[in-house]
Amino acid sequence: MKIRLPVFLLLALACTPGLALSAVAAEPMEIHITIKQHRFEPEKIEVPAGQRLKLIVTNADATPEEFESKVLRIERVILGGQSATFNVRPLNKGQTYKFFGEFHEDTAQGELTAK
């Protein structure tokens, strides 16, 4: 038993590149979000479900913002005038995924809805 579990895990890991490749087959769809006046533009975005996405967030403000989404496991500071790119996993149909700017949480709120 002591040997079998690690071997199983290794096998499982060895199989994953194949899984990952099949999932990446389609190019991720690019979604652009701009931060202006501590708000997201657009604030509500409909995205296709079950497809990998590439989120490109541009901070058009002079001040930094921490772009964060707990459900998408994103947490990164974007300095003023810069942009950042995030890879997003395929999302579930009908589900809404919130994101926010931690430095201006009262105004910087947005969500992705998978259709």
């Binding site: 002079a62 001040t63 930094p64 921490e66 500071v77 300095l79 003023g80 430095f103």
Partner: peptide, 8 residues
């Protein structure tokens, strides 16, 4: 992160 936030 706080220094970046507060200084800005």
């Amino acid at each position: 992160e706080l220094v970046v936030f507060l200084s800005a």
